Simulated assay, not measured.
Amino acid sequence: MLCCIVASVFIIIAESVQSFRVAYGQWFFLLEWFFTAIFTVEYIARVW
């Protein structure tokens, strides 16, 4: 889970760079949703 958190933060930081956002914007969007899904599943598992 720690690796997912670090990767998510890295994606957010990389997306803030205009040239990266232009080149990889679609990938950033998909990865952000991927990590959001992982974090949501993990949260639901902890509550359950």
Rank of each mutant, 00 (worst) to 15 (best):
M1K: 00
M1H: 01
M1G: 02
M1V: 00
L2E: 04
L2R: 00
L2V: 00
L2C: 00
L2M: 00
C3I: 03
C3E: 08
C3S: 09
C3M: 06
C4W: 00
C4Q: 00
C4T: 01
I5C: 07
I5A: 06
I5T: 07
V6W: 09
V6F: 09
A7D: 12
A7P: 10
A7Q: 13
A7F: 07
A7M: 13
S8D: 15
S8M: 13
S8W: 12
S8A: 14
V9E: 08
F10T: 15
F10D: 15
F10W: 15
F10I: 15
F10R: 15
I11F: 14
I11L: 14
I11T: 14
I12F: 15
I12T: 15
I12Q: 15
I13H: 05
I13R: 04
I13T: 05
I13L: 01
A14W: 09
A14S: 14
A14D: 10
E15S: 01
E15K: 07
E15V: 02
S16F: 03
S16V: 03
V17H: 13
V17N: 14
V17I: 12
V17A: 11
V17G: 10
Q18V: 11
Q18C: 09
S19M: 06
S19L: 09
S19T: 10
S19F: 05
S19G: 07
S19H: 09
S19R: 10
F20A: 14
F20Y: 12
F20G: 10
R21M: 06
R21C: 05
R21V: 02
R21S: 07
R21K: 11
V22E: 08
A23Q: 06
A23L: 00
A23M: 01
A23S: 03
A23W: 04
A23I: 02
Y24Q: 06
Y24P: 03
Y24H: 07
G25I: 03
G25C: 03
Q26R: 07
Q26G: 02
W27Q: 15
W27C: 13
W27N: 14
F28V: 08
F28H: 14
F28G: 13
F29C: 11
F29V: 07
F29Y: 12
F29S: 13
L30P: 06
L30V: 10
L30A: 12
L31S: 01
L31G: 05
L31M: 02
E32L: 11
W33N: 15
F34L: 03
F34P: 05
F35E: 03
F35K: 06
F35T: 03
F35I: 04
T36G: 01
T36C: 04
T36D: 02
T36K: 06
T36A: 05
A37M: 09
A37L: 08
A37N: 08
A37C: 09
A37Y: 08
I38T: 05
F39N: 03
F39Q: 04
F39C: 00
F39W: 01
T40E: 05
T40Q: 04
T40V: 06
V41L: 04
V41H: 02
E42V: 10
E42N: 14
E42A: 11
Y43K: 14
Y43P: 08
Y43T: 11
I44V: 06
I44K: 05
A45N: 09
A45D: 09
R46D: 09
R46M: 07
R46S: 10
R46P: 07
V47H: 14
W48D: 10
W48I: 11
W48Y: 09
W48S: 12
W48E: 11
